[in-house]
Computed example of a mutant assay.
Amino acid sequence: MASREIHELAIDTPCYFVWGRTYDEDILLQQEWSGEDLCVFPDSRTVMVPTHLEYTTVKLTLERRGDAPVLDFEGWHDAYEFSLLASPRADADPVSPDQILIAACDPGGDCCDFNALECPGGVDTWWRLRVYRRVSSAGEEHLIQAWIADQQPVARLRQH
């Protein structure tokens, strides 16, 4: 069963981050901009997702899935998949037990998160995330689909 959340993420640099653990500003300082491709950090808990535009608002749809969705490129410019190691929340919150955080690059900037993710048994869990991106007259839009899956390499599924 899929659940969807829609957010607007204010971006003032050409990327945002997906975190599989508590937000750590020091990780931002360890990585330099690497172009248009996704950048998975060595800790496997942080991924930099580039945007096509800078100083914009990204309409970000987050979709939690029970299993891998069928690839559907209709209307999307490109798509990537990556694995992310997520940790249960340190502050046990019965409403939102675990999370994958989506954060703008600037410290203290906009954030949103996937709520109620499962880390079975309360242990670190591998998630597979698929990111679709496009720019249209309505601005920049991204769709991130997430499901529990074994770790796999980063994959470029399509480039426009």
Rank of each mutant, 00 (worst) to 15 (best):
E36L: 09
D43W: 02
L29N: 14
K59A: 06
T46G: 01
E63I: 14
R45T: 10
A79V: 02
F82W: 15
V58T: 08
V49D: 05
L60Q: 06
D43Y: 01
Y55L: 02
P50I: 09
Y80D: 14
Q30D: 10
L60W: 09
T51Q: 02
M48E: 10
E81S: 13
D43V: 03
W33M: 11
K59W: 00
T56G: 00
G66I: 13
Y55G: 02
P50H: 04
K59H: 04
G35A: 12
L60T: 10
F82R: 09
D78Q: 13
P50F: 01
V47A: 09
V49P: 03
S44Y: 03
E36Y: 10
H52P: 00
P69L: 05
D37Q: 15
V40I: 14
W33L: 13
Q31A: 15
T51H: 03
D37N: 15
Q30K: 11
E36V: 14
W33A: 14
S44G: 00
G66H: 08
L71Q: 13
E63T: 10
W76E: 03
C39S: 15
P42T: 03
F41T: 12
D72A: 10
L60M: 15
V49T: 05
R64G: 01
T57M: 04
Q31D: 15
R64D: 04
L53K: 06
F41V: 13
F41N: 11
L71M: 12
S34E: 14
W33E: 15
W76P: 01
T61Q: 13
T57G: 04
G75C: 03
Y80S: 08
M48T: 06
S83I: 13
S44M: 10
V70G: 03
K59Q: 11
P69A: 05
E54V: 11
L38A: 06
L60Y: 07
A68Q: 15
V47L: 09
L60I: 12
